[in-house]
Design a protein around this nucleic acid. Sequence first.
DNA 1: CGCCAGGTTGATTTCGCTCAAGCAATGTGG
DNA 2: CCACATTGCTTGAGCGAAATCAACCTGGCG
Lengths: 229, 229
Amino acid sequence: MLDSCENCAHFEDSEWSVLGGCNAKGLDCARRSRHFLPGEPVYHEGDEPSGIYCVSSGLIGIRKVDAEGDSMLLRLVRPGQTFGYRSALTGAPHGVSAEALKDARVCHIPAATVRKALAEEPGLLMAFFRHLADDMAAAEVKVMETVSASCRVRFLRLLMALGGGEDAGLLELPVSRQDIASLIGVRSETMSRVIRGIEDEGLAHFSGRRVEIPDPHRLAEESVGALAA
Amino acid sequence: MLDSCENCAHFEDSEWSVLGGCNAKGLDCARRSRHFLPGEPVYHEGDEPSGIYCVSSGLIGIRKVDAEGDSMLLRLVRPGQTFGYRSALTGAPHGVSAEALKDARVCHIPAATVRKALAEEPGLLMAFFRHLADDMAAAEVKVMETVSASCRVRFLRLLMALGGGEDAGLLELPVSRQDIASLIGVRSETMSRVIRGIEDEGLAHFSGRRVEIPDPHRLAEESVGALAA
DNA sequence: CGCCAGGTTGATTTCGCTCAAGCAATGTGG
DNA sequence: CCACATTGCTTGAGCGAAATCAACCTGGCG
């Protein structure tokens, strides 16, 4: 059983790691792994929850569309992370949609199995609570940034976040520029201009989805604020 | 014991209602009620959590300050609602601050009591999970609105939310106009202008904190989008 | 080959911010 | 009781960041 949950490369980081051997076994039997093509939806806003999802490879995007019909990319879900747990645990319909952003393999754990695991292992709910608390903190930061920081600064911060925190001189944009734009809440035309501006200043070099950052330290400085001078 | 938790006017709506009699009793003994003056802080960003708070009267505001130092009012907490539970349950420092917005009475349930109640009544954690899920959904909507809707529309929607959903022809702004502005992420000057515009169109009439809405239906129509005509 | 989605660029407009002043209500100390 | 500061709110003038509208380019693909 090489591809079991316990042998999953990300098992230790996931909420499931709190489960004891017996329940982890049940998890393994009940789960179904499925492949998604780029753009393919996992679930839609308003759908009834059917369980919890776990990304084993690829990339998943969480979207929301507002009353006027325009949609926004709220966050990315990377391999090893779970999603859809909020509705699965509360029973309320999904408030957001999820779709594959590149070729992805996703495990699905049926609601019945989740309920069983929750009942037998109290720590599991706490693990999901922590996950949700982290997401909430990120959402609060996003609200703050959206109102106070320029789109240039928001993009620089996103670059830093994608770069893995500190001094990664080279990184790959995980999604299309349109999606990047949507992620920071700007139009794609504006995204183009911002990127061009950054390119012209030599802060970073963009070719396709490859981004080269000659001086990560300088980029970090610029991303803290709109210091004029 | 007239002012016990079970007799609290809001007990049934709160997370504590899942507790059986015996635990509710413990809750009652351990809690400490305290008065806060307007502007007085309950806790600050970065503070270590010391328990869960419950508003019995008045109004509490949840704020966050960003890197540049400017703060924003993220949400309001009304009588009967709990706050501070996120950090209390995860153990992480508070990511936001809380302060009284008007004279308020707030109960504090110490961390030890919370832990005990959680251990004895598994449903309690789920109740807080639901609360957090609701807050998260609201935060997601806020992100969407902030990027897509004009400040005018955001304010109209806030009015509708404050009005209690549908056709309340008269309502009272719970906080100062500065705070209203902060709540929807605009400058107070802009807030003034938006209010004046709405006043001039006869959509609503403002005097002090009293708002009169002659035609709630029309207001609802305008708040769905920026329909140009 | 023609089409189309993703991306870039330019011209123009608009919304909300900034800076600056003014006003009413409230408080405060002499 | 008055001179004065303070706080909350309003108004005006001007500016600038980002949206909008409109081409246009590019590479991939049927």
